[in-house]
């Protein structure tokens, strides 16, 4: 899992982000070094380019990347858990459809 070219395996883009993006494929129980210095044990496989939680995220909480909300959690998310379409939804839906 280690990348020979840079010390970290995942990148965060803003200090307030609650997710990191995997720059290499990560496997269950890998301890991923994140570009902000965090060391996060991933609790499942994280494919290249996919996101995992840096902290616990409650159901209904906004998920932050690039320092801004990219959606809300549709279920509770543990640190190190994959964050994708199964637990994150857009905030752009208007009214009843949300």
């Amino acid at each position: 899992m280690t990348s020979a070219l840079r010390p970290w395996q995942a990148i965060v883009l803003h200090e307030s982000d609650t997710v990191a993006t995997a720059l290499v494929e990560l496997h269950h129980q890998d301890s991923a070094l994140v570009s902000n210095g965090d060391l996060v044990e991933v609790v499942q496989d994280i494919p290249f380019g996919y996101k995992f939680a840096l902290c616990a995220i409650a159901r209904g909480d906004t998920v932050i990347k690039y320092g801004v909300p990219i959606g809300f959690a549709t279920q509770a998310i543990r640190p190190g858990e994959l964050v994708h379409t199964h637990n994150l939804e857009s905030l752009q839906v208007i009214g009843d459809q949300k």
């Binding site: 993006t21 494919p47 290249f48 380019g49 996919y50 996101k51 990347k65 690039y66 801004v68 909300p69 990219i70 959606g71 964050v83 994708h84 379409t85 994150l88 939804e89 857009s90 905030l91 752009q92 839906v93 208007i94 009214g95 459809q97």
Partner: peptide, 26 residues
Amino acid sequence: GNALNHFAISVGNQSGGLTTIEEKSL
């Protein structure tokens, strides 16, 4: 997007790790 019930994020975008339109847009 709401009227068409479709935002400009494709299956391929999501397979590539992007989840929501906000994330793709940023």
